[in-house]
């Protein structure tokens, strides 16, 4: 059977890794190449790179970085941030990315998902949903969490998969960077709703949080950043805890 995946996420600005809390106060967190290799060697199943500035001026720098990464990374990696068209996605894939992540642009123009799936296949298309709770409902936000829309996370996930998303990266803004654990009930609800893998993101602070995620929800993968960046925990530490809890992992 498929193993549950552990995915370190590296937020990229220019050609450096950065990390903030709830998308604010970004601070330098190292060299992407060095970090990525270390995570691969420590058992990461996949990596996720997010271009947090996604500015046009920085694009050549990002593509060049991806080419260098693809020469040393022999595990899959996805890249997101600023993908607005099939051409944007093609640039990333040709530079070595295995999948592209889309977020704001797909909310503004959902046809983008159909176009990407047609061009590259849905296994290349990761829809990232930044969601925030408002009352009893979870709503989709855009622009790195700054703007709240009136779409619910459930409705958007369902529509996105019908249009061609091959994976859903579900990021709960309320828990992001706070390290208090994943949002379990929404994650499980979305995983039960859609027929594609769901990657949970936001809130991982300890190996136990991943045990909770995989024993209490149908998520296929867990994504985290700060827990790995500060060096306190490696992907293999988490996988050993998962194995002890009876969760299938690649060790």
């Amino acid at each position: 059977m498929l193993t549950r995946r552990i995915i370190p996420c590296l937020d990229i600005r220019g050609d450096r890794v950065v990390k903030g809390v709830k998308f604010q106060n970004l601070r330098d967190a190292g060299d992407p190449l060095e970090r990525a290799r270390a995570y691969m060697d420590a058992g990461a199943d996949e990596l996720c790179f997010l271009d947090v500035t996604a500015s046009l001026e920085d694009r050549p720098l990002l593509l060049e970085l991806l080419q260098r990464l693809s020469r040393v990374l022999f595990i899959p990696f996805s890249v997101g941030g600023g993908v607005r068209s099939v051409d944007d996605a093609r640039d990333l894939l040709r530079s070595g990315a295995d999948k592209v992540g889309v977020n704001t642009a797909a909310v503004s123009r959902p046809d983008l998902l159909n176009e990407l799936a047609r061009a590259f296949g849905n296994q290349c298309v990761v829809l990232s949903i930044d969601t925030r709770r408002d009352g009893d409902e979870w709503y989709v936000t855009t622009h790195g969490g700054r703007e709240l829309t009136n779409r619910t996370a459930r409705a958007w996930a369902t529509e996105a998969v019908e249009r061609g998303a091959g994976e859903i990266l579900l990021n709960c803004i309320d828990t992001d960077g706070v390290r208090g654990g994943f949002e379990l009930s929404l994650t499980d609800e979305i995983a039960a709703l859609v027929p594609v893998p769901v990657i949970a993101s936001g809130g991982a602070g300890s190996p136990q949080h991943f045990v909770d995620l995989f024993t209490k929800t149908g998520a296929q993968a867990g994504l985290a950043a700060s827990i790995f960046h500060d060096g306190s925990t490696t992907p293999n530490d988490i996988k050993r805890a998962l194995q002890s809890a009876g969760v299938e992992v690649r060790l």
Binding site: M1, D45, E46, E167, P195, P197, R250
Partner: peptide, 11 residues
């Protein structure tokens, strides 16, 4: 199968 694509690491 229920989940398609078959995505990730399998034995």
């Amino acid at each position: 199968t229920r989940t398609v694509p078959h995505m990730g690491w399998n034995q």
